[in-house]
Design a protein around this nucleic acid. Structure first.
Ligand SMILES: [Mn+2]
Ligand SMILES: [Mn+2]
Ligand SMILES: [Zn+2]
Ligand SMILES: [Zn+2]
Lengths: 128, 128
DNA sequence: TCTTAATTAAGAATTTTTCTCAAGTCAAGA
DNA sequence: TCTTGACTTGAGAAAAATTCTTAATTAAGA
């Protein structure tokens, strides 16, 4: 475990914001001003391959990373772009329903949401 | 409605494969050899903004497009990469569960799967 | 038919991510 | 202590996907 990897992991675990690689790069740079973006990508890749962090490819074209590896969903606000964790119970009997519907065996699934955060919801109400 | 847009739409609707922009470009090129890739991107963007087709950003960093705009899920085979439609019933009471869990109002959700297609499943069994 | 607003092809540019490579680090063994 | 080898780094080049720019063409309506 190199110092760079340690700092990257530490900062990601501290954040609740699901940062992109370059957002995290900007944060890590405050502690390691000489670090390169490629090192951040390299270590995020390694850490997620090792199961120590999660790579999220649910929102658009840019990867996001999550220091919380527990199984959970995410919701993104369509107004302000904020991303929040959503902890809901696993869906019952989904594997069998999928087999019945298309013949594929389910290994994993992602349930992700689009919506309005409490703040943007309030703004909408006030505007109407 | 230009001829290019018509052909792009027609070919996408014909396909059941959820092609990427450049896969569709290769197909459309057979009918319109002078078309450019940017035209394909531009029209896919327009058609999906108009709600005539769907843009799928569920798998990795490359967009895929679907001529079928009915609400349905997808499953991707982790072995061969094939993508299939999955028609399952909407999840009951999910909006309330999400509000309770994080305070966001749900506008839409995506439930997508990773798994093994029947062919790759069979291969696995034979290998063991 | 004439006008104009939209669209095109081609290639340049952008954005995000990965790759290459020479140099640096460090632990184990001679 | 010196050498070796495995691993990692920073820097920049390269790759992959998508969007933008431009002058020319086309569609659609008066
Ligand atoms: Mn999370
Ligand atoms: Mn589909
Ligand atoms: Zn919001
Ligand atoms: Zn397969």
């Amino acid at each position: 475990m190199t110092h760079q990897r340690e700092v990257i992991l530490e900062e990601l675990k501290r954040l609740r914001t699901h940062p992109t690689a370059d957002e995290l790069y900007e944060i890590v740079k405050k502690r390691l001003p000489r670090i390169s973006l490629a090192t951040v990508y390299r270590n995020l890749e390694q850490l997620s391959a090792a199961g120590i962090i999660q790579k999220l490819d649910f929102v658009g074209r840019q990867m996001r990373y999550d220091g919380d590896i527990s199984k959970h969903s995410h919701i993104r606000c369509v107004e302000c772009g904020s991303v929040a964790d959503v902890r809901i119970n696993p869906i019952q009997g989904i594997d069998q329903a999928v087999i019945d519907a298309c013949g594929y065996k389910v290994l994993d699934y992602h349930l992700d949401f689009l919506g309005l955060c409490p703040i943007c919801l309030l703004k909408k109400h006030r505007d109407n």
